[in-house]
Amino acid sequence: MPIQYYIFLALALFTIGIVGVLTRRNAIIIFMCVELMLNATNLLLVAFSKMHHGLAYASDKASLVGIDGQLFVFFIMVVAAAEVSVGLAIIVMMYRNTHSVDINFLNRLKN
């Protein structure tokens, strides 16, 4: 498939994530939209890695060009898992203090 289709799909998913962060007030849904943006980036990295691999594959069938992109996706997944564990702990703590997950309750932090 042309690489532009993958770029457009990843851009659409990323923008949906951004709109979700901007418009929703539930902290958990905002967190899920961040996950959506990370997944859009992962998809684009895999597509680009296959694009570079395709150029080298035409001349050498056993080349490993482009494997770095897929390992970056692996590390992004590692960081996302760590981020989710800490972020959900913070949301649980916030719910214990304010009995809500509405982010507008957090504007008392500004004083």
Binding site: P2, K50, M51, I67, Q70
Partner: peptide
């Protein structure tokens, strides 16, 4: 830079676990 480039769809062996493990 992006026009005319295609992603290799079902060929290529960089996504297999053996090659990824060796690189990792």
């Amino acid at each position: 830079e992006m026009t005319g480039k295609t992603a290799l769809m079902k060929d290529g062996n960089i996504g297999l676990i053996g090659n990824l493990g060796k690189a990792l």
